[in-house]
Amino acid sequence: MGLNDMNLKAVHYVTGEPVTICIEQGIIRSIEPIRSENSDSSELAIVAPGLVDLQINGYAGHDFNQVPYPDKMVGEVIRKLWQEGVTSCFPTVITNSVQAIQEALESIALACKHDPVADQGIAGIHLEGPFISPNDGARGAHNYDHIRPPDWELFNRWQEAAGGRIRMITLSPEWPNSAPFIAKCTENGVTVSIGHTSATPEQIGEAVEAGARMSTHLGNGAHLMMPRHPNYIWEQLAQDRLWSCVIADGFHLPDQVLKVVFKVKGTQAMLVSDAVSLSGLTAGTYTTHIGGSVVLTSEGKLHLAEDKHLLAGSAQMLLKGIEHVTNRNLAELAEAWDMASVRPSGFMKLPSASGLTPGAPADLVLFRREGSRIRLERTFKLGKQVFLREEIE
């Protein structure tokens, strides 16, 4: 066997049965049940596909939206995300000045070119803005001064700076001529997601016809008050061709909303972290370039210092979302895990979309359930162990 070739014994996250996974040259070659009468699966960890985060703004004090980036920052974030079971991610660049967006995109592209860790961990870039609603509430924390209508020439300039790595864009179809812009994105392999919007149901319908396929953190980045019906949340839920991403950290959406999204969207429901740079840090008061003075609580809630009821972003990773969804009986473990792994993988047509099957890349995690907690033990990227919890060495 090669250097990173191995046989992993673990409990399959879907079937609950003990299996042996043969990994060769970074690929899952076979998955065979362990049939020995003497085997004790209670000693084995659970194996599942690596997590895929479609929306992450930063982690552990590192911010994809503050330029210039510190040296080697991108690769450092990827390494830290491996400790959270995230084997592929989409760094998210949000509304900013034209030059700041370009510099962030260039920095990510440069990192992917020169750092194998960044190249392996980054499946694409998510551009969230600046073609979003300028209205208070809908625009969330995005800077009003930099919001603008869709501009294909400008987008192409940014795509060139990104080395073609912009794979997803969040926009609002309320702008005139949004549909032709969405169609051009779709034709050029860029997934269009609707978010931070004040669009009418008719405009959302036009966007879907033009190729929009997803809703960005549905239910957040929205007005505090809106018409009972029709409104842009109902319309996105009702559009069969739109997949829905939600932040399931227990703070951004009440359980009732999560339950409705899961029931309506079924296998088109996905989890994202939308984590900001303060995620992964200890509880305390921090000063940010977007929200000013903010408080990160020991429970993981991030709110404005002057008002604990106003969120200042997400500070929880996908593992916490899976924990919340399963602990609140909103989904079984396998389904919740799929919402954060194979579904986003398949949605973005990544090689890891097939999950735990022969021929798939060996992007895997091993974990245990300890009461209400999920305890990650090991992470593998392309068959190479990239994280091992110290106490199990």
Rank of each mutant, 00 (worst) to 15 (best):
E24M: 06
V386F: 04
P33F: 01
C89A: 12
I247M: 10
G300W: 13
A183V: 00
M168V: 11
A111Y: 07
R368F: 02
G291H: 10
S273L: 14
S298L: 02
G163P: 13
A331C: 12
V47N: 05
G75L: 05
I392K: 04
M168Q: 14
C22K: 14
H12K: 02
I122F: 05
Q66M: 04
N57G: 06
S244H: 12
S215R: 05
P91T: 13
Y69K: 03
P49M: 05
L330P: 04
V74A: 11
S30F: 00
P49E: 08
W234Q: 02
V276F: 06
S88F: 12
M1Y: 10
D53H: 08
P254K: 06
G121D: 15
A315E: 07
F387H: 11
N96Y: 05
M339W: 13
A315P: 03
A199K: 03
E17K: 14
Q236F: 06
G16I: 07
F251A: 08
P116C: 12
S244Y: 00
A183D: 08
R167L: 09
T357Y: 02
P254T: 01
T200S: 15
M6T: 11
I374T: 12
M348C: 13
A207P: 11
R228K: 13
L366T: 05
L364F: 13
G284L: 02
R157F: 06
F387K: 07
T87E: 00
R368M: 08
I233N: 09
V276K: 00
S36L: 03
R378K: 15
T87M: 01
V208M: 11
I78W: 12
N188V: 10
N156D: 02
V67Q: 08
Q120T: 10
V19K: 03
V246K: 04
A183M: 00
L319I: 15
G85N: 11
K113V: 04
N177F: 09
A199F: 12
T357F: 14
G284N: 06
E24W: 00
S345P: 02
C22F: 03
A362W: 12
P361I: 10
R35I: 01
V246W: 05
S314W: 01
I108Q: 01
G26M: 08
E17M: 03
I46G: 00
L51G: 13
T200H: 06
E187H: 07
W158V: 09
T92W: 09
W158H: 14
T197V: 11
